[in-house]
Every structure is written in structure tokens, then in C-alpha cells.
Amino acid sequence: MRMVMCREATRLMSKNLDAPLGFQERMSLKFHLAMCGACRKCNQQFQLIHDAGKAFEEKASSPPFDTNDQTT
């Protein structure tokens, strides 16, 4: 397995949001994340940014039952 550093790990976590990773890539990323707290945070935040796009539209297309929409 190829050892990767943070910069390369961020490339893999980004690609993971767009396409399936190869086996080697997946293992390299998994191993790095197991060791690196900063990259675990980065991975969560990339995921959050990814979800934010969808959330933006959901928020924007929610029906206006209440103008100050605080429904849960």
C-alpha cells in the first residue's frame, strides 16, 4: 500500500465525492485517515460542503407554509 501525506489524502477524499476510488486509493485514504485527525476533520468538512449544495436547494425549494420557516 502506498503511504500518502495530507495533501494527497485531500485529493483522494475529494475524488471520493465524485467517483469511486480504486482499491489502492481507498486503502491509502483509509489508512491515512486512521492516523490523522486533521484530515478526518477535513474529510467531514468536504462531505459537509458536498451536502450543503443539496441542502441549499432543499432549503430554497421548501414550500412557504410559513414565511419564517423554522419547521423541523
Binding site: T10, R11, S14, K15, L17, D18, A19, C42, Q45, F46, I49
Partner: peptide
């Protein structure tokens, strides 16, 4: 190229 651009975008936005 698309993956490279998205990676950069995510790093900058993060």
C-alpha cells in the same frame, strides 16, 4: 482535470 478543479475548489472553500 475536473477532479483537479473540484479538489482545488473544495480546499479553497473549506
Amino acid at each position: 482535470n475536473c477532479w483537479v478543479i473540484l479538489h482545488r475548489g473544495r480546499l479553497l472553500l473549506r
